[in-house]
Design a protein around this nucleic acid. Structure first.
Lengths: 111, 111
DNA sequence: ACAGTTTTTAATTTAATGCTTAAATACATT
DNA sequence: AATGTATTTAAGCATTAAATTAAAAACTGT
């Protein structure tokens, strides 16, 4: 396999590492990860999500707030309902990559 | 843009989400992220890493232990030096993807 | 304006993380 | 075996994160 498919990656300033770590922390939770996977398919309300996740409405709402505060998701209001959706395409890509690397069977495990 | 470049991704069991969240948590720290970026290039000792990171030897060692306990890195002994290196190719891929998505300038920001 | 949804906020408790310091272990050299 | 260097471990403390519960907002329909 060739070495230079990817362009040279940028340096790694500490501030960049801090920002990236912040972002990763915000998605490094089983419920938030699940929420992001669900939102890949369609927009969903707190209630919709709660059905898939086995916790309280309040808790789902808190997790959504965390994702929102990091600009990862977005919402629109429809009457009483708040429809949440992914707002940063990079997150969609990242989730896809992670699922390919770590959730699919026995693949791409070598350097 | 086409929808089906990627093969269908696997389901999302809660246990899988938990595992993945664990893994993400272990890399979601600025120092550990920096360590992983450094180890992309070459193997390094605690001392080598400490020069790049501005913290104590003990602290670097603790962060390395966390990465080791998740099977992300590996080491070999050379006299009293311990040379650390990445042991899971999927992590290399993940780091590369993240740097492309989030550290390079102004790119790939749209869905 | 009142009752019925849906969602958010706040307060509390509990658990997990991260850093610092100091002491211990592992190996090499003399 | 004694000293020196590299690394790890352990204890203590401070900070942050997560879940639960209860109360408050935001909106709809009557």
């Amino acid at each position: 396999m060739r070495a230079a498919i990817f362009p040279p990656v940028s340096p790694m300033q500490y501030s960049e590492m801090e920002q990236l770590a912040e972002l990763l922390k915000s998605i490094a939770h089983p419920i938030r990860l699940k929420i992001l996977c669900l939102l890949q398919e369609k927009e969903m309300t707190v209630g919709d999500i709660r059905k898939e996740v086995r916790t309280t409405h309040a808790n789902v709402s808190q997790h959504l707030a965390i994702l929102r505060s990091h600009g990862i998701i977005d919402f629109r209001r429809d009457a009483n309902f708040i429809c949440n959706r992914i707002s940063d395409g990079r997150i969609t890509e990242l989730i896809k990559t992670m699922r390919l690397l770590f959730c699919d069977r026995e693949e791409s495990r070598n350097a």
